[in-house]
């Protein structure tokens, strides 16, 4: 569907995007992750034709970005970061204007705006001025703007930034609904968002792609390292350390927290791909410690993200 080849963008001497290659298939929800200033927004802006690439090529379906920009724009719905809408317009007027520019005729316009009002929950605010809207409502109008023409490709730049948890859940639900038939590309720096919505993850750092993999694969490869967290009463760290470090497969034991008269919190790092829960439990059973908490954690996307994008 979308084919990106050696895409680069320089702002004077500063390289924002460096030789990116990416293929996006139809019906995929792609999450673009990266720290601030990694080049996510720049990439999306080039994809939507707002910025001209310094070098490289973008092909959408059979259209070349530099030749058939208008055709590509027709296929895409784009919601820029923080949805900058015209402040002076009413919500209805704005949607009507966008529908006009998208080439919808009069009857289709009304029915489509009705659909979007239901989908994005704009019922109450149709006749309010955009300048009066809260951030979340503004974002929803922006989403309606992006979906006006029922585009095949939907590009969302940090669609949930600045929203409250309820609104985030709503917007994610909308994205998932759309993602069933459409291609969605969304950028974010909230990792749980990607985990919750995306099929594929691309992590960008300093303008380069560092990870490009399906969500399941990433979960599998990251699921190799386990941590076991224990809270134990009536034990001191030295004893726990001596007892448990003898177990085969334990890489390290760390004290997280210790309160007088309270539990001792310990984290055990396990060798990759080994499940030590049973052995650890058997060991503890032999002592007179009181085990009040016991759970296993696996390495998350967050850990990978930090490892790959942290400055060294």
């Amino acid at each position: 569907m979308i084919h990106i080849e050696n895409l680069s963008k320089y702002y004077r001497d500063f390289c924002a995007v460096d030789q990116i290659n990416l293929d996006i298939k139809k019906g995929e929800i792609l999450g673009l992750l990266g720290p601030n200033g990694a080049g996510k927004t720049t990439t999306l802006r080039m994809l939507t034709g707002y910025f001209m690439p310094t070098s490289g090529n973008i092909r959408v379906k059979d259209y070349q970005l530099d030749e058939n920009l208008l055709e590509i724009k027709k296929l895409m719905g784009y919601l820029p970061e923080s949805a900058p809408l015209y402040h002076s317009m009413l919500v209805y007027d704005y949607l009507d204007y966008v529908a006009g520019l998208r080439g919808l005729d009069k009857h289709k316009k009304i029915s489509r705006i009705r659909q979007l009002v239901d989908l994005c929950g704009l019922d109450e605010i149709m006749h309010r001025s955009i300048s009066e809207l809260s951030k979340g409502l503004n974002q929803r109008v922006g989403l309606a703007h992006a979906m006006m023409d029922d585009p095949e490709i939907l590009i969302l730049d940090e669609p949930t930034s600045g929203l409250d948890p309820n609104q985030i859940a709503e917007i994610r639900e909308i994205i998932r609904q759309i993602g069933e038939e459409k291609t969605v590309i969304l950028s974010t720096h909230i990792l749980s968002e990607v985990e919750a919505t995306c099929d594929r993850v691309v992590i960008i750092d300093k303008g380069k792609i560092v990870v490009n993999d399906r969500m399941e694969n990433l979960k599998q490869s990251t699921g190799q390292t386990h941590f076991i967290n224990l809270d134990i009463l009536k034990a001191n760290f030295q004893d726990v350390h001596d007892k448990l470090s003898g177990i085969d497969g334990v890489v390290g034991i760390e004290k997280i927290n210790e309160k007088p008269n309270g539990p001792l919190s310990v984290q055990i790092t396990c060798k990759s791909a080994s499940d030590l829960r049973e052995t650890v439990y058997q060991e503890i059973k032999q002592t007179d410690w009181v085990l009040i908490e016991f759970h296993q954690e696996t390495k998350t996307l967050e850990t990978i993200f930090r490892e790959l994008t942290e400055e060294d």
């Binding site: 802006r45 939507t48 034709g49 707002y50 208008l70 724009k73 027709k74 895409m76 784009y78 820029p80 923080s82 949805a83 900058p84 809408l85 015209y86 402040h87 966008v98 520019l101 998208r102 080439g103 922006g142 703007h145």
Partner: peptide, 12 residues
Amino acid sequence: VGSYEMLLTLPV
């Protein structure tokens, strides 16, 4: 405001 970005990415 930044609305130029929204305008220019419409099919115009």
